[in-house]
Each structure stands twice: as C-alpha cells, then as structure tokens.
Simulated assay, not measured.
Amino acid sequence: MSRLPLPADWLVPDWPAPPGVRAVCTTRSCPAGDAPSAAPWGGFNLADHVGDAPQAVASHRAALAACTGARPVFLKQMHGCHVAELDAYAPDGQPADAAVTASSGVACTVMVADCLPVLLARADGAAVAAAHAGWRGLAGGVIEAAAQAVRRLGPHPPASAASATSAVEVVAWLGPCIGPDAFEVGPEVRAAFTAARPEAAACFSPRPGGKWLAHLPALARQRLAALGIPTWGNDGSPAWCTFSQPQLFHSYRARPVTGRMAACVWLQAGHP
C-alpha cells in the first residue's frame, strides 16, 4: 500500500515497542491533499457521530489508512470497559472502549477529544491494544481489561488467568488528554477512584466550591504501575494538554462542537 506522509505535528510514540509494532496519534492537521472539515469541526476529524459531513469523515478515515498502511477499526465508544478482539474482517462500530489484535495490518483505534488514549504492546510483538480512558472507563477498569486482553492474546496463551495478568511483558504509551490544570470534576469523580484505590487521592487537587482538578495521566500511570507495565508519553505537562492547545488538538471542553482525534496501534503487515 502506498502511504501518505504523516503531518509534521502528528504524535509518533517514543517508546520501546518491539520491531513490527507501529503507532500514531493524530492532531487537527490534515495529511497532504486531504481537505479539512468545515467549521465548527475544523481540521482533521475522524468521528462520524459529531455532526460533521459524512463525506469529510470518510475522506479523513481513508487518509488515516493511507498514512498508516493499516486499516483502522473505529469503535462505538461507550465510556465502558469492554474490549473488542479484532481480526482482518472486524467491522467498524462495535460497542467497546478498547480493542486488541494479533492480526497484522489492522489498527486498534480509539477516538479522543480530552479523554486519554492508552496504547499497549506486548514486548514479544505478538499483540497490541488501544484503550479509550475517560474518567468513567479509567475508574471502571478499562486499562486493566485491555492489559489482560493483550497479555492473553498471542501464539502462546498463558496457562491461567493469574499468569495472564503478570507473566507477559507489556509496554504502554499515553497520548494527549485534558491536563491536570484544566480537568475540573465533582466530588463524585474523586470518590469513584479513591473508594477502591485510596492512593488515587494524590491525583486530585482541591478547588473552590467542593470541586477538584483531576490528573488523568497520573491516575492511568498508577494503574499501569500496579499491573507491572512501564509507561511512556503523557506526563501531565502542558505540552500534552488538549484543552490548552485547541489549535493543535480537538478538545470537547474547549469547543463543545468539535471533531475527534485518533490514537492507533498496529502490527506492521509483512513483519516477521
């Protein structure tokens, strides 16, 4: 497949993924030759549920496939924890907030516009996964579900559920999301995390009126660390904040009518 060059500001993860694993996170920038969506969506929008013109979304999705050399599979994201297992024939629109595959040329894809995208890869290159981690999914265990799925999938499945959660080495990358200086939430959000994990309290800063600022990347890193998964990417610094950079990233809180970016991870076709 002939590939389009990636726009210069698309994010290519700097992580120790094995040979044959590829990943990218889009921005608002369109690949060469692809027209941006009209206002108010603007730029490169990959979501077909936000009111954008269907022909624009279809063009953008085709451009993403041309840039990656893989077929991105788009989910119907529900802010839950279900993981869809993808193969070469997997359709778009499956209700899930994470995807896993051991098939080459198929990109596990999650759409975001403030929520946190989490990409996972087995160190042996046998499988990859992507998770859409808004606060509901993150609190509910979407990262744990995706990690278990990617550890189970591959040529040599673990002998037991216990070994599936720890024996297979996995690495993770966190993409851009709303930052810890912008993500104001109510006390119910903090309670959803701290009820099961008291250490999550360190990821919230108090605000006037009983509100809190939540640190999504730190919450995700806590959970990944508990799974024994080393993590790269978003460290919570301003450079990764979607809300504070609405010209670069789609941000729902900055613009309620906006498009969606995509974070994709796939196994390169033809790689041993």
Rank of each mutant, 00 (worst) to 15 (best):
A23C: 12
A23P: 02
V24I: 15
T27F: 04
T27W: 07
R28N: 06
S29M: 08
C30V: 12
P31Y: 04
P31D: 07
P31T: 11
D34G: 11
A35C: 11
A35G: 03
A35E: 14
P36E: 08
P36C: 09
P36Y: 01
P40C: 07
P40V: 10
P40E: 06
P40F: 08
G42S: 13
G43E: 10
N45W: 02
N45D: 15
L46S: 09
L46W: 03
D48E: 14
D48W: 09
H49D: 15
H49L: 00
H49E: 12
V50D: 15
V50H: 14
G51F: 09
G51T: 09
D52P: 02
A53V: 13
Q55V: 12
A56D: 10
V57E: 08
A58V: 01
S59D: 06
H60G: 11
A63P: 08
L64R: 09
A65P: 05
A65F: 07
A66P: 03
C67L: 06
T68K: 04
T68P: 10
G69R: 04
G69F: 12
A70Q: 11
A70W: 08
A70T: 08
R71T: 14
R71Y: 08
P72V: 07
P72N: 01
P72M: 11
V73M: 05
K76M: 01
K76C: 06
K76N: 13
K76L: 13
Q77A: 01
M78C: 14
G80W: 06
G80R: 05
G80Q: 06
C81I: 15
H82C: 00
H82R: 15
V83Y: 05
E85P: 00
E85K: 07
E85I: 11
D87Y: 05
A90D: 04
Q94H: 02
P95Q: 11
P95A: 13
A96K: 13
A96I: 11
D97S: 11
V100G: 00
T101N: 12
A102H: 05
S104E: 09
S104Y: 01
S104C: 12
G105P: 07
A107C: 09
A107E: 01
C108V: 12
M111P: 00
M111D: 00
V112D: 01
A113C: 08
A113G: 01
D114P: 07
C115K: 12
C115E: 15
L116R: 00
L119Y: 03
L119V: 10
R122M: 09
D124T: 11
A126L: 06
A126W: 05
A127M: 05
A129Y: 05
A130R: 09
A130E: 05
A131V: 10
H132Q: 12
G134H: 14
R136E: 15
L138D: 09
L138K: 09
A139H: 02
A139W: 03
I143Q: 03
E144I: 07
A145K: 08
A147G: 07
A147E: 01
A149Q: 07
A149S: 14
A149F: 05
V150E: 00
V150K: 04
R152M: 15
L153C: 13
G154Q: 10
H156N: 12
H156M: 05
H156R: 15
P157G: 06
P158D: 04
P158C: 05
A159D: 12
S160E: 03
S160H: 05
A161W: 12
S163D: 15
S163M: 11
S163A: 13
A164L: 08
T165R: 14
T165A: 14
S166C: 11
S166T: 14
A167M: 03
